[in-house]
């Protein structure tokens, strides 16, 4: 697999100054909202065949970052989640594990243990949101401390939020520097997912600029949203980010992953997102290493669909586990 280390590439010089970064980001092709949404909708009408559907559902399960991000999270809740991530379907051990569990930094340790206890160590990653998630409104040193704590507790992946205030104020270099600093804090052991909170960036032009900004700063993944605002992952904003990683790899040779998060609840939706991946970025991204779903309730729907495909009967909520 290609590495994603922020090495020197064709675009290294665009981050030399605030001005050059701004010129670069504003020089990216604009996005026509109507055309983008029409394309996303049109890809949503693809239908995939039954054998491919089984593959798609297993692939989707293996791409889930099983997430709990509540103020009321407890070790008990996280332990249950860790066990479920390793063996999502208690009645069918052939069900693939999810890609990761995603928790707050203080629960990383608990998650690690739970996964290990269920036999998923090394297989199911632990991702931790950090940098004063979800608002990101804290001094840089606090954010970095947040990251370091998560990494120290064993997080394999860090999901940071960008400073949307700085971005919307046009202070792109500040956002860039912050992502760089967090990347550095992740060291070599943790992959960095950069959350844009697309609902707050609001325009597609902003989402494209943020995508390139994040990738230039060394993001291993670009991620739509926190799940905490009104508009989270949509087919259109995910399609746009897939175009960005596709174009970034063409320009630099560096491959970056994409993670839509929030709002994806059904298997049907998940398959539509996989179609977007397939037809936009291509098969190189159809892998949990490069594409994730940030979700919680999605997993149960995927499992019910999986049971339906295996048995021919429709399943029900009593046959999957409550979280």
């Amino acid at each position: 697999m290609p590495t994603t280390a922020p090495t020197a590439h064709a675009l290294s010089d665009v981050t030399a100054s605030d001005g050059s970064l701004r010129r670069f980001l504003h020089g990216l092709p604009g996005v026509d909202a109507v055309g983008l949404e029409a394309r996303a909708a049109s890809l949503g009408t693809r239908s995939i065949k039954t054998t491919a559907k089984a593959y798609a559902i297993d692939l989707a399960i293996s791409m889930v970052d099983l997430t709990t991000l509540e103020g009321a999270d407890t070790p008990g809740k996280v332990r249950a989640l860790g066990a479920k991530a390793v063996h999502p379907d208690p009645t069918d051990r052939s069900a693939p594990a999810t890609a990761a569990v995603c928790v707050y930094p203080d629960l990383v340790g608990v998650a690690k243990e739970a996964i290990a206890a269920a036999g998923g160590a090394g297989k199911v990653k632990v991702a931790s949101v950090a940098t004063a998630f979800p608002a990101g409104r804290a001094p840089l040193e606090v954010k970095l401390a947040d990251v370091r704590a998560a990494v120290a507790a064993g997080a394999d992946e860090v999901d940071m939020v960008i400073d949307r205030g700085a971005f919307l104020a046009g202070r792109y270099l500040k956002v860039y520097d912050e992502v760089r600093a967090v990347k550095e804090a992740c060291g070599t052991s943790a992959r960095l997912k950069v959350i844009f909170e697309t609902g707050e960036l609001s325009t597609y032009d902003n989402i494209r600029r943020a995508s390139w900004l994040g990738m230039l700063a060394g993001a291993d993944f670009i991620k739509t949203s926190t799940g905490k605002v009104a508009v989270n992952a949509t087919p259109a904003n995910t399609l746009l980010m897939l175009e960005a990683v596709r174009d970034f790899r063409a320009a630099t040779g560096v491959q970056v992953g994409v993670k839509p998060a929030g709002g994806i609840r059904t298997s049907k939706d998940a398959v539509k997102f996989l179609v977007l991946v397939n037809e936009t970025a291509g098969e190189g991204w159809l892998d949990p290493h490069w594409f994730r779903f940030g979700a919680s309730s999605l997993l149960n729907d995927l499992l019910m669909q999986r049971q339906k495909l295996a048995t021919g009967r429709y399943s029900g909520p009593d046959y999957v586990t409550v979280d």
């Binding site: 491919a52 063409a250 397939n278 159809l286």
Partner: peptide, 16 residues
């Protein structure tokens, strides 16, 4: 330019 080949595993229907 490189063109991503479509995944053989991720086939669409014949969905007639």
């Amino acid at each position: 330019m490189t063109i991503e080949k479509r995944s053989s595993a991720f086939e669409y229907a014949p969905a007639p």
